[in-house]
Structures are given as C-alpha cells and as structure tokens.
Amino acid sequence: MAISRRAFGVGLLAAGVAGTGGYIAVRDRPEFQGLLGNRTKLFGFIGGEKEAFLADNDVVGALHGYGLDIDSRVAGSVEMVREQALLSQTPAFLWPSSSIMVDIARQSGVKIRNDRVVLNTPVVVYTWQPVVDGLMKTGLVSVTSTGQHQLDLKALLDAVLAGTSWSKLGVDSLYGQARIVSTDPNRSNSGFMFAGLVLSLFAGNIATTAGLDQFGDKAQTIFRNMGFKSPSSGKLFDQYLAGGLGGEPMIVGYENQLVEWIIADPERWRRVQSSSTAKPVVLYPHPTVYSSHPLIVIDESANRLMDALTSPKLQELAWTKHGFRGPLGTATGNADSAIAGLLPAEIDAVLPIPDASVMLALLDKLAA
C-alpha cells in the first residue's frame, strides 16, 4: 500500500523526536557517556597502591563507558597535596589515600570543587611465617576467632624502642634488633598513617598537640631506626616480596596489596602456600587505622570520574579483583576463592588519625 507524503513526513518527525529524546536520555546518564563516542581525558595524580586498579582492562572498559580516559601518574599522597611542582601541572583530580589529605590540600591552596571517599583499606603489617611463629610464642601475635592474625603493635613498638633482638621475641632465624619498616611519612600515605597510629598508641588515645610534645621523640626514634624508607607503598611491597624474610622481615602496607597480588595469579599463590620456603602473612594491628581513598575534584570535569568510581560495577571490580573495600569499609562483591578466609569481614578496632595540624607538626618532626 502506498504511503502518503503526509504520513511519511509524520513518521520522519516521530523518528527524529525519538532519536533526540534517546540522545538526551543517554547524554544525561553518566554511565552511558561512552556510547556517544566522545571521551574526556582526565589527568591526575594517584597513590601507587591504586595503579594496578586503574590499569585493569575491566576497569578501563568501565571508565570508557562513562566517556573517560584516565591519564594517571603515581605520586605519594602527601606529595600530591603539598608539592607545588606537582600541583602546578594542573591536575583535574587528586586521588590520595587518606581523607585527612583533603584538609591538607586546602591548606596548600588547592581549589577543591568536590571530594568523596570512594575506597577504603585498613593499614596492616606484612611479615613471614617464621616471624609469626616466634611472635605467637611471646604473645605479640594471636589468632582471632575467624582465623586472622592480630598484632599487639604497641608491645612491638616498645620492644623496638628497647632495642630488643629478634631472638628474644622468639624469632631465632633473624639476626639483630627487631624492626618494622614503613614508607617515608613525608611522601607516602601508608607511612603517614602509620606515623599517626604510632603517636596515638604512645599517647594512649588519639594524639593531640600535647601528645606530640610528650611522645613525639618516641615516634621519631621508631622512624629513625627504620633506615631507608621507600617513597611508595607499592615499591615497598615489591621490596618485601623480593627481599624475603631476611631482606624485609616486617613492613607496613595496605590490606588490599596482598589480595591484589594473589588474585593476579592464584596459581602462583598456591605454589607459595605449598612450598617449604617462608610464606607471606598479613597481621592486623590492634587497633589499626583505615586508609580512606578520597577523590579530590579540582576540575569539574572530574565529577564524572567520581560518579564512575562509586558505581556498583567499579565498586565490585575494586573489591573482587583488587581487594579495596567500599566507602563504608565493607566488601562490595563476592571474594575470589583464592582469598577465602584471608580477610575479616569487618575491622572492629580502628583508631581515628590525629587532626591535620598535629599530623603536619609530626611530619616536620620526623623530617628533622
């Protein structure tokens, strides 16, 4: 049957209206931005522990769905919010590893348009099975009801301050005085967070200016005894794995780092578990501190990145492939079988970090 010109014209108009409406619907849905064929390239600085996450092909693909290409460069969390040499490169966003960095960024003159914690991971201590066996004999390490290892960090710090040997702590396979190593607190967040935890443990509560005056020297001694301190959490973790029991007997890191390493190659983890060599072990300090990962939006175009990172898809990828907990510190997906039982469902002993003024004064003391 022939179609009249009027009917044909009405059909074209209807199709045009539907197409325009569809375009507007897609345009206004951030998760469909990539369907329009235009991607925004965002440059920013990130903590090294998130490098593998943003390089993950599944994560890259999900970000493309939001119309985003991310040009991220690794920098220490403290550096990225304080160093003008980095801030002068006009990043669209900063993604440090502690919520206190938002306050420090403001004090550094950063014009923040938006900020939100998008990931969480507790600060932990990585060591090796022979160390755990010895510390369990002396009561510094215990096993929780759910099978994780818990560290009495204050008792360990007291032993380090006293110059106690590894052998007196039950670890006969190691020579010399007991030590624990973190990253440089003036450059990297895991060292920064550990410094706040150390000071608060000596003070017996969340450290204040009075606590810094009274116990700052003790914290300074702990860090001085570490020797060289890596500028990056990722580099320190790599040194730990490469150095083994003798090279790095005990380091400070993030919970997600071992998880990410296991999930990247589960067969490698099974080989490690079945071998006769010293095995990596994660210890949960009691109490610990949470490393919250806030996205700091400097250019409003990075608001779309915040939408993407808090989406269910990217939150699930962050947990199931990289071990990052969600904004509330809980799991955001089903854990891989390779890490079943490795992580506690919740961290029940968390100490807040001292406020920004105390932490900045502590950094100055540790740098002296």
Score class of each variant (00 low, 15 high):
Gly176Tyr: 09
Met226Val: 12
Ile296Cys: 08
Gln129Trp: 08
Gly34Ile: 13
Asp217Arg: 08
Glu31Ala: 12
Val281Gly: 06
Leu212Ala: 12
Ile3Val: 04
Gly21Ser: 11
Lys137Val: 02
Glu51Gly: 05
Thr330Met: 11
Arg5Asn: 10
Asp238Thr: 13
Leu366His: 07
Ile263Pro: 01
Arg325Thr: 04
Leu360His: 04
Val17Phe: 11
Val281Phe: 10
Ser97Val: 03
Asp307Arg: 14
Thr330Lys: 14
Leu328Glu: 13
Phe202Asp: 09
Arg116Gln: 15
Val289Met: 10
Asp184Thr: 11
Ser276Phe: 12
Lys235Phe: 10
Ser108Glu: 07
Ala14Asn: 03
Trp95Ile: 06
Trp95Lys: 07
Val17Ile: 15
Leu362Met: 06
Phe53Glu: 05
Trp319Ile: 01
Gln257Glu: 15
Ser230Tyr: 01
Asp238Leu: 02
Val123Tyr: 02
Gly333Leu: 14
Arg325His: 02
Gln177Trp: 06
Lys321Val: 09
Ala264Ser: 13
Lys168Gln: 12
Pro30Val: 02
Asp364Pro: 00
Lys365Gln: 12
Thr320Ala: 05
Met136Ile: 01
Gln220Asp: 06
Gln33Gly: 12
Ala14Thr: 05
Ala340Asp: 08
Pro327Gly: 05
Phe194Met: 06
Thr332Gly: 11
Pro327Phe: 01
Ala203Gln: 01
Asn114Cys: 10
Asp172Met: 15
Leu156Met: 14
Pro122Leu: 13
Ser142Leu: 09
Gly170Lys: 06
Gly109Gln: 08
Lys313Asp: 13
His64Leu: 14
Val143Gln: 15
Thr330Pro: 03
Glu346Ser: 13
Asn120Trp: 06
Gln129Lys: 11
Thr144Trp: 02
